[in-house]
Design a protein around this nucleic acid. Structure first.
Lengths: 193, 193
DNA sequence: GCGGTACTTTGTCGATCGTTCCAGATAGCG
DNA sequence: CGCTATCTGGAACGATCGACAAAGTACCGC
C-alpha cells in the first residue's frame, strides 16, 4: 500500500455542498471549491474526477442526509397527519434556517442542471420518487383507515404534497418568512381532509 | 442628429430570455447572447450596459408577458374557481410546452440570482406579490359570497396557491408529465372547498 | 530502513469568461 | 452631397475558468 488519504472525504463533500447551495453549479469555481474544502484542485480531481463528479457526490450526500431521514420519518408508523406535518415543518425550518441563504440543492439542481446532465436528472427523479412512494404508502394506509379523504387517489395526494414542498422552497428563496411559509404548509395539509 | 438604432430592442430581449431560460444566468455566456440576439457584444453593452443589465431587462419582459396577463385574468371578474383553474392549466401548459426545456425564469432567478443581486430579488418579490394580491382580492370576494371556504384567510389561501404554482414548475423540470401535473393542480384547488 | 506507491501540492495549460475599444458603416442635417 | 454623430461587428483585453502534469511527501510491506 501507500500513503493514506489525509482528508475526510465526507467532510470535503459537505463543504462543497455548502458552496453549491449558495452559488449554484455554474456560479461555483474550482477555486471556490478548493478554498471551501481546503484541498488543492489536484486532490479534488484525484478524488472526484471532475467538477461534475464532485457535484454528483454532493447530490448523493444531500439525498442521504435530508431525503432519506424524511422517508424514514414517513415510514415510522406514527400518525399520518402528524408525520406529514413534521416533514413540512422540518422543510420550513431548513429553508428559513440560519439566514445563510442555503437554497435547496434539489430545487436548484432541477432548475440549473437537470436539463444539462442526465445523471443529475436521474438522481432527482429517484429522490422525488422515493419520497412520493413513502407518502403514497402512508396515505393509502390512512385512506383504508378512514383517516383522510378518499376523494383523491393516494398517488395524486402524494404528488401534490411533494409539489407543495418544492413550492415552499422556491417561496422561501424569494421571501424567507417562516410564519407565512408555515401557514401555507398548513393550507396544503387541509387537502387531506 | 445621426444614425438610428437598427435592431429591435424587444426582439433582442426576447431572444436573450430564451437562452437564459435554457441555460440559466451563469451558464449563459456573452457569446451565447450575441449569437441568440444576432448582435455584436458592443451593441449589447451599448444598449444594456452589462450582462446583468440584459438579465434585468429579460426579467421585466418576462413579467410583462406572463405575470401581467395572469393578473389580468384573475381580475377579469369571471368565476373565481374557473379563472384560478385556468391560471393553473396555463402554467402546466407553459411548463410542458414544447419540449425545449424552458424553465420558469422566475423560479430559476429565485434559486440562482435572488441571493446575489438585490435588484433581481426586488423584481421577484414584486412579481409574486402582485400575483398574490390579485388572488387575495379574488378570494376575499369569493369568501364573502360563500363560494369558497372561510376556514383559512384569503391571504393564506393566496400564498398557498402561488406556492403550488412554483412547486408545479419545479416538478415539471424534474418530470414533465402533463397529466400528473394537472392532477396535482386539481388537488391544490380542493383546498378552496 | 528502504523501495515502492498512493496521495498532496504546486504551477501552468489552452480556452473562455465579461468587458472594452476601435475602425468602418450608416443615416439625419445643413 | 459632405459632415458628423451614432451605431455596428469584431478584435483584443486581463482575468479566470476547468483540467492536468510533474514534483514532493508520507505511509506501507518487507
Amino acid at each position: 500500500m501507500a500513503r493514506t488519504r489525509e482528508f475526510d472525504l465526507d467532510a470535503a463533500v459537505d463543504a462543497a455542498m455548502d458552496v453549491f447551495r449558495r452559488k449554484g453549479y455554474e456560479g461555483t469555481s474550482m477555486r471556490d471549491l478548493s478554498e471551501a474544502t481546503g484541498l488543492g484542485s489536484g486532490s479534488i480531481y484525484a478524488a472526484f474526477g471532475s467538477k461534475d463528479g464532485l457535484y454528483l457526490a454532493v447530490l448523493d450526500l444531500y439525498r442521504q442526509r435530508y431525503a432519506t431521514p424524511m422517508v424514514d420519518l414517513l415510514r415510522s408508523g406514527n400518525d399520518p397527519r402528524a408525520v406529514i406535518r413534521e416533514v413540512f415543518i422540518g422543510a420550513v425550518d431548513d429553508i428559513t434556517g440560519d439566514g445563510r441563504y442555503l437554497s435547496c440543492l434539489i430545487v436548484g439542481a432541477s432548475m440549473e442542471r437537470a436539463h444539462q446532465d442526465v445523471r443529475v436528472a436521474e438522481r432527482l427523479r429517484s429522490t422525488t420518487q422515493s419520497l412520493e412512494l413513502a407518502l403514497y404508502d402512508l396515505l393509502a394506509e390512512a385512506q383504508l383507515r378512514g383517516q383522510i379523504t378518499t376523494d383523491r387517489s393516494a398517488t395524486d395526494l402524494a404528488g401534490f404534497l411533494v409539489t407543495s414542498l418544492q413550492g415552499l422552497r422556491v417561496m422561501g428563496a424569494i421571501n424567507p418568512d417562516r410564519a407565512a411559509l408555515t401557514r401555507y404548509a398548513e393550507v396544503a395539509l387541509t387537502c387531506l381532509n
